[in-house]
Amino acid sequence: MKRITASLSATVATLAASAALASPASANAPASFEPWLQRSAAQCSGISASLLAAQIQAESDFRTDAVSRSGAMGPAQFMPGTWAIWRTDGDGSGTSDPYSIPDAVMAQGRFMCHLYGQTSAGVRNGTMRGYALDLALAAYNAGLGAVQRAGGMPSGGEYSTQTQPYVAKIKALEPRYRYLDGGASPLHQAGLDFGSLAGLPF
């Protein structure tokens, strides 16, 4: 009986944790980020401030001094080579700094707009399977080439252990930041296309 009770308790705890991630509690982005998230999202249709906020939380937890073991920099975690291409002087200070909130967030939106344009075209012409926004997030994490080679959500190895959970985490976090969108969000989709994510404990 004790073993059954313990098993039930563990199951309930697991389900509760999954529900908390799937329906996150209300939370706010740091005030210093909010206007830049909204301005960055306005660079193209299909990318929302709530998505960018969730992505930054997943990338750095809004830390401006974040540096990854692989050398990714700032709140949006740009690798040096990627920053060299997509860097932006968001606040007009005369410099482009990946640790600056305006610069990093505006560059993040600019890069996401590009990726979303590429994955949207791929889904339309049949060279990619899945939802364009999911694939754009995967491309931000793993590179557009990985998504193109897979013809959709990449899987296997680190794609299954890092990229797919990265996409799932952002999709789970995004609803808590929808206040930044004024109630609108591009994420109202008929379903999610996470492939092998179905069996993972999110």
Score class of each variant (00 low, 15 high):
Tyr99His: 15
Ala66Phe: 09
Pro165Ile: 10
Gly90Leu: 02
Pro186Met: 09
Arg110Lys: 15
Ala104Gln: 04
Ala190Trp: 09
Ile101Trp: 02
Pro165Lys: 07
Tyr131Asn: 14
Thr119Trp: 01
Tyr116Cys: 04
Arg39Ala: 15
Gly126Arg: 03
Val167Thr: 04
Tyr177Met: 11
Ser100Ile: 01
Ala168Lys: 07
Gly92Leu: 11
Ala132Ile: 00
Ala107Arg: 01
Ala198Cys: 07
Phe33Asn: 10
Ser26Pro: 05
Ser196Leu: 06
Ala142Gln: 04
Ala27Cys: 07
Gly151Met: 03
Ile56Gly: 05
Asp65Gln: 10
Ala107Asn: 11
Ala146Ile: 00
Lys171His: 12
Ala104Ile: 02
Ser96Ile: 00
Ser48Glu: 11
Met106Lys: 03
Lys169Val: 09
Arg149Cys: 08
Ala16Lys: 01
Thr82Lys: 03
Met128Asn: 05
Val12Ile: 08
Arg110Asp: 10
Trp86Tyr: 14
Gln164Val: 15
His188Ile: 13
Gly143Ser: 12
Leu21Glu: 15
Ser96Ala: 15
Phe202Thr: 14
Gly199Pro: 03
Thr95Val: 14
Gln162Gly: 10
Ala168Cys: 07
Ala72Trp: 10
Ser120Ile: 01
Ala132Val: 00
Arg63Phe: 04
Ile170Phe: 08
Gly195Tyr: 05
Thr82Tyr: 02
Gln108Pro: 00
Gly130Asp: 04
Val105Phe: 00
Ile170Trp: 01
Arg124Asp: 14
Trp36Glu: 10
Ser93Val: 05
Gly46Val: 01
Gly191Ala: 13
Pro154Gln: 02
Ala6Trp: 07
Ser50Gln: 09
Ser45Pro: 09
Asp91Met: 14
Gly151Ala: 02
Gly182Gln: 02
Leu8Trp: 05
Ser60Cys: 06
Ala31His: 06
Phe62Tyr: 14
Ala25Thr: 02
Leu115Met: 11
Glu174Ser: 05
Ser96Met: 15
Glu34Ala: 14
Ser70Leu: 13
Tyr116Trp: 13
Leu137Lys: 01
Ala84Ser: 15
Gly92Asn: 09
Leu135Lys: 08
Phe33Met: 13
Ala172Arg: 13
Ala142Ser: 13
Ser23Ile: 13
Ala29Ser: 11
Ala54His: 03
Ser7Pro: 03
Ser40Cys: 02
Thr14Leu: 14
Gln164Gly: 01
Ala190Met: 09
Ile101Leu: 08
Gly122Tyr: 01
Thr119Tyr: 00
Lys169Ala: 13
Ser160Cys: 09
Leu187Trp: 00
Thr82Cys: 08
Tyr159Asn: 15
Thr127Tyr: 10
Pro175Gln: 06
Ser26Phe: 13
Ala198Ile: 08
Ala17His: 08
Asp91Ile: 06
Thr163Asn: 06
Leu173Tyr: 07
Thr64Asp: 03
Leu52Gly: 04
Asn141Met: 03
Leu137Val: 13
Ser45Val: 03
Gly151Ser: 07
Ala136Cys: 04
Ser68Lys: 05
Pro98Ser: 04
Tyr131Thr: 11
Thr95Pro: 04
Pro30Asp: 09
Gln118Lys: 14
Arg69Phe: 11
Ala58Asp: 05
Ser160Gly: 10
Thr161Glu: 07
Ala104Asn: 07
Trp36Lys: 04
Ala19His: 04
Ser48Gln: 07
Gly94Phe: 09
Met112Pro: 03
Tyr159Glu: 15
Ala13Arg: 07
Ser40Pro: 01
Gly157Phe: 05
Leu197Asp: 15
Trp86Asp: 13
Gly122Trp: 00
Gly92His: 12
Phe33Leu: 12
Ser160Gln: 10
Ser26His: 15
Asp181Met: 02
Thr161Asp: 11
Ile101Asn: 10
